[in-house]
């Protein structure tokens, strides 16, 4: 292969082909936006319910309902991909996706902690609202940018 190296133009064409087919696959087969919105909002509801829960008040129920809706919508998300012929990756293999998932996991853990701690210990009553909204937005962003858990959707 060393004696038959492609030209710069051929190399660019090959990279463009890789980029185009990956992006086309990610965009064409992605599940509907409403499903990703439900997943994000129910995920945020878990954070909100957790932050607002005191003993067994109604917010504990909100957290449980949020968790159930999130689980069901995630299962539907996985199923919709599968019937189209795509099995999404739960644990990423690329370094870029691993980093994004690691940062997200740390961020969600921090949001969960602060959602409750700031309200109960520092009396910031709006903390669960902010943390839940942030968790929803970040989850929605992840579902848009990393729909199959591996390759990032990006503009060329």
């Amino acid at each position: 292969m060393k004696n038959d190296l492609p030209s710069q133009t051929e190399a660019e064409d090959a990279l463009n082909a890789v980029h185009n087919i990956q992006q086309n696959l990610l965009i064409e087969y992605s599940p509907p936006v409403w499903l990703r919105l439900i997943m994000s909002l129910s995920y945020g509801a878990i954070f909100f319910g957790y932050g607002m829960t005191e003993h067994e008040n109604n917010w504990a129920l909100a957290m449980i309902v949020g968790a159930i809706i999130f689980t069901l919508s995630t299962a539907l998300y996985y199923y919709l991909y599968k019937i189209q012929g795509i099995k999404i990756r739960i644990i990423p293999r690329s370094i870029k996706a691993e980093k994004i998932n690691a940062y997200a996991a740390i961020g969600f853990a921090a949001l969960g902690f602060f959602s409750r701690f700031l309200r109960t210990d520092i009396s910031l009553d709006w903390a669960p609202h902010i943390c839940a909204a942030t968790a929803s937005i970040v989850m929605f962003w992840l579902l848009i940018m990393l729909p199959t858990g591996e390759t990032v959707v990006e503009e060329k």
Partner: peptide, 16 residues
Amino acid sequence: RICAMLATSAELDFRL
């Protein structure tokens, strides 16, 4: 192109 598509997911269907 096959490898590029397979790199995006865990598994892909032959028909896709």
